[in-house]
Design a protein around this nucleic acid. Structure first.
Length: 498
RNA sequence: GCCCUCAUCGUCUAGCGGCCAGGACACAUGGUUCUCAACCAUGUAACAGGAGUUCGAUUCUCCUUGAGGGCGCCA
C-alpha cells in the first residue's frame, strides 16, 4: 500500500488581470472556484495579475472587485482582505519573483535572450509558411557567458527565457482526465522582461506555490499553458497542483464568446437589470449540472451541490433566452418592496419617476402589475411608462376591438366613464365587478357575443394605457385613481373624434 | 500549418452495454383571458458518419468529419 497522500488544505484562486471589465467567462471561472472552495471547506483567494503594466489600470481592479461582490462571490483573501500570503497584487510581489528568477538563472535553467522582436516575428512567419510549429529556435540558449555579460554591459535589449525540456508532460485534469503535451514542439518561453519584470507564466507558478494554492480551476484556453507551468514548477522544485480546465462559453455560432456578438462584460448584464442570483444560477448551469432535474439554485444551494467532476467537457453556448427565463423567474419571486427599489433607478434615468410624484404604495402596485412581463429590470420602463406620463399618444384605430365602429367605441368609453364615476369607493374589486357586469349588458344591447368582454374592456384598456399590450384595465384604473382614469377616457374620446 | 481538446433535440443537458433516449429553455397548439405576460396541459425535435469489440452499442476502441482552444517580450 502506498502511503496515503497527506491531504493539504484546499485553496483555490481567481486571478484576473485588470486590463478591462470583468468578462462573463471570468465571472464564471470565479464562481466555480468559489463554489469549489465553499463545497470543500477551502479558501478562495482573489489575486490581481497586473504584471502587464502597460495595460493594467486601477479602475479595472476596482470594477472587478465591485462586480464580484455584486454577484455575491466573496473571497477569503485578496487585495482588500489581507491574509498571510499577501500582497495579492502581482505588481507588489516583484521581490518574490526576483528571488526565484535569480535562482533559475544561477542554475542555468533560464538565460538571457537578445533576439529582437522583429527577428523573432520573421522566423515565426517563416516557420508557419514551412508548415512547422512556430517555436523559438534556441539561438541565445547556447550563448557564451562572456558574450551574455558583454551584451548586458552594453545595455543591449534582452529578455529572460526558460529552458523548456524536450520531453512529454502528462498531467491529470479533474475534468478531462489524462492530458499529454509534447514539449519538444514548444521552444523556450520568455518568463520575464528582466529580473524585476516577470511575465504571466512565471508569476503564476511562483504565486500559486507561495500562496499554497491546491487546485487551479481556470478556462480551457489555459490547457496548453499548464504543461509549461508544470515544467516551471519542476525546475523550481515546487509541488504539483491539481488542475481543472473549464469548458469555454460560446457565442451562438459556437465561436469563443466575444464582443461584437453580444455583451461580454458582466457589468453590461448588471446594467440591463439582470439579477445576480439569476446570473450565478445561469452561469453555474453552463458547463455543469447537479445530475438531477433541478434547475433553480441559489448560491448557497450551488455551493452545497457542487462537484467539479460533474463539469462538462465541451463548450457551452451562452443562451440569452435561457438567462431571460431564469431572470424572469427571480423577478417574479422577489418581494415587491425589493423589486420596487431595484426598478427605481431605471425609471429615474428614463425621466419618468420624479421624487415624491407617486406614493410608495402606488409605486409598488405599479411594479406588482408589471412584474410578470419583465425579463429584466430595464423592461420596467417600457412596461409602466404610461403610469407616469400625463398625456397618452396613440392611433385611434388601436381603440377598436374586433370590427367595432367608431360610434360603438365611443359609446363603450362613455359607458365606462359613467359607470366608474358612479362607483362608491375606489378599489380594484369594485372596479372589476362593475365593469364585468356592464360588459355583459353592453354586449347584449349591441348584439355582440355575451362572453366576449373585449368590446367594452379593450377600448378602456387602450384608453388607459395607450398600448397594444399592457396590464389589465382594472389594475390600471385602480392605480391611476378616479380622476386620471376619467381624464384618460375622455382624452381617448377626443382622439377618436379627430 | 502544427499541437491539444471536444462531439445526445435549435440551445443547456441526463444517460456511464439492454431506456418508448429523460428534463429545462426556445418553438407550436389548446386552456385561462379584453391584450400581452404569468400559469396549466399537450406537442414538434437529438445520439455527426464509418469500421470494429460484443448476443447486444448513444455508451468501449479506431478512423473520418465537424467545432473550439493554443502555438506572444498578453493573460
Amino acid at each position: 500500500m502506498p502511503a496515503k497522500k497527506i491531504l493539504k488544505s484546499i485553496r483555490v484562486r481567481f486571478a484576473p488581470s485588470p486590463t478591462g471589465p470583468l468578462h462573463v467567462g471570468g465571472a464564471r471561472t470565479a464562481l466555480f472556484n468559489y463554489l469549489f472552495a465553499k463545497k470543500n471547506n477551502g479558501r478562495f483567494v482573489l489575486r490581481i495579475e497586473d504584471t502587464d503594466l502597460e495595460r493594467s489600470e486601477l479602475k479595472w481592479t476596482q470594477e472587478i472587485l465591485e462586480e464580484l461582490k455584486w454577484l455575491g462571490i466573496e473571497w477569503d483573501e485578496g487585495p482588500d482582505i489581507d491574509g498571510k500570503f499577501g500582497p495579492y497584487k502581482q505588481s507588489q510581489r516583484i521581490e518574490i519573483y526576483e528571488k526565484y528568477l535569480k535562482k533559475l538563472m544561477a542554475e542555468n535553467k533560464a538565460y538571457y535572450c537578445f533576439c529582437s522582436e522583429e527577428e523573432l516575428e520573421e522566423k515565426r512567419q517563416d516557420q508557419m509558411s514551412r508548415g512547422v510549429a512556430p517555436k523559438y529556435d534556441g539561438k541565445c540558449s547556447r550563448l557564451d557567458e562572456e558574450i551574455t555579460q558583454k551584451n548586458l554591459a552594453e545595455g543591449k535589449p534582452s529578455v529572460i527565457r526558460f529552458r523548456v525540456a524536450d520531453k512529454k508532460v502528462k498531467f491529470k485534469d479533474l475534468i478531462r482526465q489524462d492530458v499529454e503535451f509534447d514539449m519538444g514542439l514548444m521552444g523556450d518561453i520568455v518568463i520575464a522582461k528582466n529580473t524585476s519584470a516577470p511575465l504571466y507564466h512565471f508569476a503564476v507558478v511562483v504565486d500559486d506555490f507561495e500562496m499554497e494554492i491546491s487546485h487551479v480551476i481556470r478556462g480551457e484556453e489555459h490547457l496548453s499553458n499548464t504543461s509549461r507551468q508544470i515544467l516551471l514548477q519542476e525546475a523550481l522544485d515546487f509541488e504539483k497542483l491539481e488542475y481543472a480546465h473549464l469548458p469555454l462559453m460560446l457565442n451562438p455560432d459556437r465561436s469563443k464568446l466575444s464582443k461584437r456578438k453580444g455583451d461580454v462584460a458582466l457589468k453590461d448584464y448588471h446594467d440591463q437589470g439582470y439579477l445576480p442570483e439569476a446570473l450565478t444560477n445561469f452561469m453555474a448551469l453552463l458547463g455543469w449540472n447537479p445530475g438531477t432535474e433541478e434547475e433553480i439554485f441559489s448560491l448557497q444551494e450551488l455551493a452545497k451541490e457542487f462537484s467539479i467532476e460533474k463539469a462538462q467537457k465541451g463548450g457551452a453556448v451562452f443562451n440569452i433566452q435561457r438567462l431571460d427565463f431564469i431572470n424572469g423567474f427571480y423577478i417574479r419571486e422577489k418581494p415587491v418592496e425589493k423589486l420596487a427599489e431595484l426598478c427605481k433607478p431605471y425609471l429615474k434615468d428614463a425621466g419618468l419617476l420624479v421624487a415624491g410624484q407617486v406614493s410608495e404604495n402606488k409605486f409598488e402596485k405599479i411594479i406588482e402589475v408589471s412584474r410578470t412581463r419583465m425579463k429584466k429590470l430595464s423592461d420596467i420602463v417600457e412596461l409602466s411608462d404610461f403610469f407616469f406620463i400625463d398625456k397618452l399618444n396613440f392611433d385611434k384605430n388601436l381603440l377598436k376591438w374586433d370590427n367595432m365602429q367608431d360610434n360603438d367605441v365611443k359609446e363603450a368609453l362613455l359607458l365606462c366613464d359613467i359607470i366608474l364615476s358612479e362607483l362608491k369607493g375606489w378599489d380594484i374589486n369594485k372596479i372589476e365587478e362593475a365593469l364585468m357586469g356592464e360588459a355583459v349588458m353592453f354586449n347584449n344591447k349591441k348584439g355582440y357575443p355575451e362572453k366576449n368582454r373585449g368590446f367594452l374592456l379593450w377600448p378602456l384598456r387602450v384608453a388607459l394605457s395607450g398600448k397594444q399590450a399592457s396590464a389589465g384595465p382594472f389594475e390600471i384604473a385602480d392605480i391611476l385613481g378616479r380622476e386620471k382614469t376619467s381624464k384618460r377616457i375622455n382624452d381617448a374620446i377626443k382622439i377618436l373624434n379627430t
